[in-house]
Design a protein around this nucleic acid. Structure first.
Lengths: 338, 338
DNA sequence: GCTCCAAATGGAAACGTTTACAATTGAATT
DNA sequence: AATTCAATTGTAAACGTTTCCATTTGGAGC
């Protein structure tokens, strides 16, 4: 233990000011209940002794901490945008937001939710794949948790998300409209419901256009740049190779782009590429990336507002869905044959 | 307030198990002090009632939280690497690390340090520019704070950093050795001691080589990609333009690179560029970036170890300096005339 | 001058733990 | 059989606040 000297308590302040502890407490937190003179007295004592309230004691008494935890799978700019959205809304509601990253490990997710169970935080926002995470929330009562971005497959947790399926449908339709017929898909991490919805949207768009899906044009990725590279390398070895690729996120689209360049192919001349997420980097690549924009800030903001309602004991809408926006940039164009 | 039902307390567990609160407490935290039978009894009751200890109460009693806060200026991958270093060491020492970002705002830094003053955290690691931040730590006793990456100019806080000046000297010397004589520098944010040390190293290298510094070749940046672009645009307008540029971080080097490409210049053929930090992206740019590697993980790790010592009441070495490493990649070469 | 009331204050009980101390056991030592 | 001791448990006092309740005070209204 530290040999740091004991901190100043409210008792000592009260003594120094010549008032009772109760009055000192009131002077701090409910100034209107105390005469201006006593207020002055206490303020002077606080200043003189360098008193800081012990928030842990306050939290224990008040049975709440004013802290919400935002759990993200990785500390990447994308998720941090969601966090920023949460943070802004949290500030408005008088909460403090802190980030924690789960590294996509279920046990770490549970550890964060446990912080709520053990009263170290008031609520949790999970911007992570709940279903894959093995997050078992155990017996009721359900802790105040809101899922952001993804949704809770089991349906027992409120969520704020986007319609991944519809967005993927739109992205694929864009490629079809440009004239592409052989379109490949690089799927996201297996077991993530986000990945599955995006894949379904892709499938539905092809079906709607009457274009059969060649199983060779489907690659099981995991959201990393490397997966994108491997996928594209595979696609390029197919005799009748695809003229367009729809990746389930920007990172994989980037990997695909890089593999193309290495193979001497230029997008969009030889091949069109579409990403998903509209991460900052998507606008900066060469060529810039056509991608599906996800309203990360709004997602975080709404998740926090939902959580706020839950914490206030209000009822909340179980599923909130925010709109996406297909952003056309330089990586897509008509197929080479056209 | 929430209409959530009151949580199960240790008292209820004790009653259910037919033992005293003290025994129940011991069964949880000091199992060796209790007979196996009682242990069983308590465990069963805990399970039956779904008891979770109230950590806030524990913290209050123990007068410590086991939490350390890592304050970073921005949630960028670079700082998150430092965080990861802290996190790993924290886990070894039995602490939990949480990130907070200050947005380079002094008041936010102070707010985080205040969290330890008000006992919500045991210590703080500041991976941020202390001197510019207006962080006034007020009267003693000094809270347990360690500065990482930067150092505390005023010298009243222990720090773990690298020798920015020597690293900048090495980077500049590399360019000189390649034959460059007109070398420009894009400086970091004004008021950051890191920026100043890097600038000094640059100056000293030129001086050591007997090369005078043209004031036109010095640009005051702020660590952003945009600053790098603007700097390079300025440099390219100079009649006798530089053949090499040393940027105070990778982001600005990237901006410079991009401005070059737009101007139709190719690195390293027409111009050499050196960055600082060796962020992940440095290896992925086209061309890949020659840059000064900063041991971010080790920096975080050592900072946490220092903090651990302080919290244990041990004396610590005031300044710890870790080595950097110049990583040669594809963005540097001999000047065009050579 | 008396009552009544609001405002200001103090005393003390909470909040849910941990732990110092005391009390109770039963076995081992003499 | 008396003594000592370790092991196990219980009682109660903390930790630093907030807040309920009671008490004191000084006017205002009669």
């Amino acid at each position: 233990m530290s040999k740091r000297e004991r901190a100043v308590t409210l008792r000592e302040v009260a003594e120094a000011a010549g008032v009772s502890v109760a009055t000192a407490s009131r002077a701090c937190s409910k100034p209107q209940l105390v005469t201006p003179e006593t207020r002055e007295l206490v303020a002077a004592a606080i200043d003189r002794l360098g008193y800081r309230p012990n928030v842990i004691a306050q939290d224990l008494k008040r049975a709440s901490t004013g802290v919400v935890l935002v759990v993200v799978p990785s500390l990447s700019p994308y998720f941090l945008d969601i966090f920023r959205g949460v943070e802004a809304a949290a500030a408005e509601l008088g909460y403090t937001a802190l980030v924690g990253h789960s590294d996509r490990r279920g046990d770490r997710e549970v550890a964060f939710v446990d912080r709520v169970r053990s009263r170290r935080a008031d609520g949790v926002i999970l911007a992570t794949s709940v279903d894959s995470g093995g997050l078992h929330l155990g017996r009721p009562p359900m802790p105040p948790v809101v899922v952001a971005l993804d949704e809770c497959g089991a349906g027992y947790l409120p969520s704020v998300s986007v319609d991944h399926e519809a967005a993927a449908f739109a992205a694929t339709s864009h490629l079809l409209a440009l004239g592409h017929r052989r379109i490949a898909h690089i799927a996201g991490a297996a077991g993530s419901s986000m990945s599955e919805h995006r894949l379904q949207g892709f499938r539905r768009a092809l079906a709607a256009a009457g274009t059969p899906l060649d199983p060779e044009l489907l690659f099981q990725g995991d959201f990393t740049v490397e997966a994108g590279e491997r996928a594209m390398e595979r696609f390029l070895m197919i005799p009748h190779r695809p003229t367009a690729v729809f990746a389930a996120n920007d990172e994989m689209a980037l990997g695909a782009l890089r593999a193309c360049r290495r193979a001497g192919l230029k997008a969009p001349r030889d091949l069109s590429i579409v990403g998903f997420d509209d991460q900052r980097i998507a606008a900066l690549t060469e060529p810039s990336l056509t991608t599906v924009g996800v309203p990360t800030l709004a997602l975080g903001r709404q998740a926090m507002l939902q959580l706020g309602r839950i914490l206030a004991g209000e009822a909340v809408q179980q599923k909130l869905v925010l709109p996406t926006k297909l952003t056309l940039r330089a990586s897509t164009g008509p197929p080479p044959s056209a």
